[in-house]
């Protein structure tokens, strides 16, 4: 883990560190990028974070855990909660996380499984709206708040049932695949950083007798 990845040098002192002054004295940076602070990530404790009130850490990634099946609201979904990857002791509780969905496809790159959607289907090509926003909870976890908080990989029941009715035996099809870019809000401004901390390959697959949602390679039952 590179400490710089979790260091927002604008937030740190509520001003640019490229030049200027603060309580610690004058400073100037001739190179682009964050200041060359020498510390080991394990040296930065929660106590230090709160005491200094300056560091604004960003995660370097996250891991997904399946924990919820959604079969209501006319939707089959596999719900996931996420554990942020941050150095021990760093706390992101209360920060906002936003997803941006891109590369929406009715097939999955590198997967020979056929697409569920086809020209002639009465259902439209898979589409997505703006991404969701979550709040980080205790333990640097988000999406763990149940039906209205989990990150779902799923599809509307009518369309999913339709495509499932065209399968038999061990057949399966890919409903969609996406790229999901996760970003976290700044400590001071609440705005999201442009740099995603995690870029995830997600997809939803329909089998003849069940359906699975996949987030970061972790699968869970949606029906």
């Amino acid at each position: 883990m590179d400490g710089y990845d979790c260091y927002d040098y604008w937030d740190a002192f509520e001003m640019s560190l490229l030049e200027g002054s603060n309580e610690a004295g004058s400073y100037s940076w001739s190179l682009n990028g964050p200041p060359a602070i020498g510390y080991g990530t394990t040296q930065i404790t929660q106590y230090a974070h709160q005491d200094f009130g300056t560091f604004c850490p960003y995660p370097t990634g996250e891991t997904s855990q399946y924990y919820l099946l959604e079969n209501s609201n006319m939707y089959f979904g596999a719900g996931f909660k996420m554990q942020l990857s941050v150095p021990w002791g760093w706390v992101c509780t209360g920060r906002q996380i936003h997803e941006v969905i891109s590369n929406v496809s009715a097939s999955r790159p590198g997967d020979s499984t056929p697409a569920c959607w086809y020209s002639g289907s009465p259902y439209g090509y898979p589409s997505f709206g703006p991404g969701s926003t979550w709040t980080v909870h205790t333990g640097n976890i988000h999406g763990d708040g149940g039906q209205y908080d989990a990150d779902f990989m799923g599809y509307s029941i009518g369309a999913a049932d339709y495509y499932q009715s065209l399968l038999s035996g061990s057949q399966s099809c890919v409903m969609y695949s996406t790229t999901q870019s996760m970003t976290m809000s700044s400590c001071s401004t609440g705005l999201f950083t442009a740099q995603p901390y995690s870029v995830n390959a997600n997809y939803f697959k329909i089998y003849a007798t069940y359906m699975l949602g996949f987030r970061q390679g972790t699968g869970g039952q949606a029906e």
Partner: peptide
């Protein structure tokens, strides 16, 4: 008549 509005996201239609 089935209704399919942003079917990939449970709350997609409501959000937009």
């Amino acid at each position: 008549m089935d209704v399919s509005a942003l079917p990939s996201q449970s709350a997609g239609f409501d959000n937009l």
